[in-house]
Design a protein around this nucleic acid. Structure first.
Lengths: 221, 221
DNA sequence: ACGATTGGTGACGGGTCGTCAATTTCCGGT
DNA sequence: ACCGGAAATTGACGACCCGTCACCAATCGT
């Protein structure tokens, strides 16, 4: 197999067969084109044709890799989630106090959004008024993970026994919405945005109603 | 004009000309059909054709009323915003304390979402994973209004001098995200959801960094 | 009662969708 | 080095959607 003559070894792409190689390449070509086109036209306005047109490939080839533009979008989002999720989890596990738990989450998130503005802006800041948010399996898993970590923190006595589901939802809502605002500002400051969100939760968690059982049900009044 | 014979007065649709009457009717017919179809297929999957097909009208007629499915969606959202916005504002203006300000906002919002689950579910809970949020002029105005009210409250010394923009964004994020969770629960309890969100902010606002000037800029560290 | 005007109708050209038979490219065995 | 089979690419195709517009019916003002 490995002939003594190494000369024409195909670049060095992990030495896969040519087949697998172009497969990976084409996938990336499509994703890159999609990022570009989504950024220019917005998610709603782009068509599968727009994406392949920004590519040297034929229309049929697209469907060998993705079922629809939605699936491409998902893949792009998943790529981001895959970067961010382990980072967040690691930092949360290291947290010894409520403040550390919360602040590490927001700091990582805001920094990621600010740094990766290429992708994020391309995707989220898309068109004018229409925001699309896809709940990728990977992203949903990230949310669940946060909720589990909150539950764990409650079990360890780090957090008071609050409604973990609502707390997770609140963190997610604040993270996304404040990040969005941050990106519209002239002087982007992820640290300040994270500090704001952190203070809100660190101060607020103490006041939260205590839910003795996981399934929280307070009376009507 | 008003002949003595009232008998066949056309229902009582504000006694407009027949022309204006069917105009209003058709608009409502389209909106109803749209609500139904969006609920069944989700926003992304529905086409303008699907909407008119759920209607006795012809395809061309649709475009006499709306430019696109996006515009129909906007109209539906605006209708909701138009109901909710004055309610929220009134209650906020009556608020004498931080607690009243925050709790009235969340209570009204959560109750509205819970009551109007027909519309809200039809629209927001649309497909499986793809959430679409359109920033209607009316909705954006509602956000701005909240921010202004916060600024007013700060000026009056009701609130500490926090970053009104981020605070507004946080309230919006928590409201939407917690409401979403609330709707997935078996035992929907708007009061509990509102209480949770209120406690979070009432407790948290005290800890928020004080922004002396409206344009908040903390150093990098 | 009658012309003017408004608004509904549905067919049309242009474009997208997802598919599929034909073709090219790659791989492994001889 | 060559060849046959597998795998992937290609682009044309029928079905459908889009937004428009000439045509026609209903309504209005007089």
């Amino acid at each position: 197999m490995d002939s003594p003559i190494i000369a024409k070894a195909p670049v060095r792409t992990a030495s896969l067969g040519k087949r697998e190689q172009t497969k990976v390449q084409n996938r990336e070509i499509i994703l890159d084109a999609a990022r570009k086109v989504f950024g220019e036209l917005g998610f709603g306005a782009t068509t599968v044709r727009d994406i392949i047109r920004a590519t040297p490939l034929a229309s049929g080839t697209f469907y060998n890799y993705f079922k629809s533009k939605e699936e491409v979008f998902q893949a792009i989002q998943d790529e981001m989630a895959l970067t961010l999720r382990p980072r967040l989890r690691d930092e949360r596990l290291k947290a010894k106090t409520v403040e550390e738990f919360i602040s590490s989450t927001f700091r990582s998130f805001m920094e990621f959004v600010a740094e990766d503005h290429v992708s994020v802006r391309t995707i989220r800041h898309t068109a004018d008024t229409t925001r699309v948010r896809i709940h990728t399996p990977e992203i949903v898993a990230g949310f669940e993970e946060l909720r589990e970590d909150i539950e764990k923190a409650i079990a360890q006595g780090l957090f008071p026994p609050v409604d973990a589901d609502y707390l997770m939802a609140s963190i997610v809502g604040v993270a996304f919405e404040v990040a969005d605002r941050m990106m519209t500002r002239e002087h982007r400051d992820p640290a300040a945005a994270a500090a704001f969100a952190t203070a809100l939760f660190v101060g607020g968690i103490r006041m939260l109603p205590h839910a003795d059982h996981p399934a929280a049900k307070t009376g009507t009044a």
